[in-house]
Amino acid sequence: MSAADGSDAGDAGDDPIGYFIEDMELHGKSRRTRAEYGRVLRRFEAFLADPSRGPGGGSIAPAAASHRDCMAFVHALRRDPDLADSTTATYAAYLHRFFAYMTQVGAFDANPMALVMEELDERIDTDPTRREISVPQMRSFVAEIAHPLERALIVALLKTGMRVGELCNLDLRDVALSRNLGGVATDTRAQLDGRPDSLFVASEPAVDESYNGEERTASNKRKRGTVVPVDDELAETLLRWLAIRPDAASPADPLFVGTGSGWGERLTPEQVGRVVRSHAEEAGWYEPGAGAAENVTPHYFRHFFTTHLRDRTGDRGVVKYLRGDVGDDIIDTYTHNWGDNVRETYERHIYSLFNEDAGARRVGST
């Protein structure tokens, strides 16, 4: 974005964040992107407004923030146990772009994040070396999870490589199985027609926006919707969960809902994170403050999926398709020949989490 679009920096007024988000819309940024920036920038604004948190001991506006204020905010992010270092780096980049733009259009005098970003490059590893866990070790880990919901959450993450927000945003219409869904009636999406035993992970859901009749608490970050195969093991796990799943409180009919205090309500990424953390702690795979290099979190399962499936297939394209990391030109190649390029490759190589054999069979096979 640039000042050459005719934007009047004087319109920034008392809400520079709102001004920035509006300009993002004018520059064609998606609602999901604007929502992500808005959430992080409002968190920064709230941090500055709290006199007990900033280094200066007072309440200030974003326009008055110094590099020390920005560094204090980033330090607070790094202490958040629910944020990986890579996520902290992403949030810092959002803040940097905000200040750079506001400086460029003349609303702010300087970009205090410029110096902070130089320091972050040295202090934050955005692609940390993670704990190495073998398939047999992960198989033993899964075997200890008895609760049908908790088992379904973790097996789904391990078998699909989807993000935790994408998992939480799944609705029953996003599931197509050959077997009966435990008496649960579903009208699946058109994208799943002719593709039984699969899940559809959409790209549209965004934080605080209504999708399929429900305001969402998480964003999907896919470049485009993706059809992901379901093997026997994931199908069995989902069926066991659906057999005891409470009626959903939302008309969107979420796939994963609470069985405790939030009975029937869509699970949030924070709730899934607590489930994973609890089991990881029991396995000795989580230590508060240890960071992404040591701790097993929902995002670790995406790393596990990517590493092991890529090593088994030798096909980075299929793995990137399943992760939702590719653009329209590449994804169309796999979508048009989904059965050969995606399903067959996946079924041949996906690791088993229940048995000793190397692969997991297709649903309904012998």
Results as ranks from 00 to 15, higher is better:
171 D>L: 09
15 D>Q: 00
87 T>Y: 13
151 R>Y: 07
323 R>S: 05
91 Y>P: 06
283 A>P: 03
12 A>Q: 01
87 T>E: 10
205 P>K: 03
107 A>L: 04
315 D>F: 07
177 L>P: 06
60 I>E: 01
94 Y>D: 13
108 F>T: 07
265 E>F: 13
300 Y>A: 09
342 V>W: 00
99 F>Y: 15
154 I>V: 07
317 G>S: 11
27 H>P: 07
312 R>N: 05
60 I>Y: 03
111 N>G: 09
310 R>D: 09
363 V>W: 03
52 S>H: 04
139 R>Q: 12
139 R>Y: 10
310 R>C: 06
118 E>L: 10
232 D>Q: 15
242 L>H: 05
21 I>T: 02
134 S>Q: 01
289 G>K: 00
3 A>P: 05
221 K>P: 02
103 T>S: 11
268 T>N: 13
31 R>T: 14
311 D>M: 04
249 A>F: 10
81 P>I: 12
151 R>P: 00
82 D>V: 15
212 N>G: 04
271 Q>A: 15
176 A>Y: 08
358 A>S: 10
138 M>C: 09
127 D>N: 14
21 I>G: 00
68 R>W: 08
139 R>T: 14
272 V>W: 11
222 R>N: 09
40 V>S: 09
258 G>M: 08
141 F>G: 01
314 G>H: 04
110 A>T: 11
312 R>I: 01
130 R>D: 07
266 R>G: 12
173 R>N: 04
58 G>H: 05
224 R>L: 07
302 R>A: 13
156 A>C: 12
94 Y>P: 07
316 R>Y: 11
246 P>S: 12
123 R>T: 15
3 A>R: 13
74 V>T: 09
213 G>L: 01
61 A>Y: 04
219 S>W: 04
63 A>F: 02
257 V>D: 09
356 E>H: 14
345 T>A: 02
219 S>K: 03
176 A>G: 00
110 A>G: 09
235 A>S: 14
170 L>G: 09
363 V>K: 01
335 T>M: 06
80 D>G: 05
230 V>P: 02
331 I>N: 13
164 V>K: 00
69 D>M: 03
25 E>L: 11
359 G>Y: 11
364 G>K: 07
94 Y>V: 08
264 G>M: 12
293 A>E: 12
5 D>Y: 12
286 Y>H: 06
75 H>W: 10
90 T>F: 11
354 F>M: 13
333 T>W: 03
274 R>K: 15
205 P>E: 04
313 T>Q: 03
217 T>A: 10
255 L>N: 02
274 R>I: 05
29 K>H: 14
249 A>M: 14
321 Y>I: 04
162 M>Y: 00
256 F>T: 08
8 D>R: 05
149 L>M: 15
273 G>N: 14
212 N>A: 15
239 L>H: 13
343 R>N: 02
253 D>A: 15
51 P>W: 07
117 M>A: 10
161 G>I: 01
327 G>V: 12
90 T>P: 07
109 D>C: 08
361 R>V: 10
110 A>E: 13
208 D>V: 12
152 A>Q: 01
256 F>A: 06
329 D>V: 13
15 D>C: 00
78 R>E: 12
28 G>K: 08
146 A>N: 14
29 K>V: 07
197 D>A: 11
257 V>H: 11
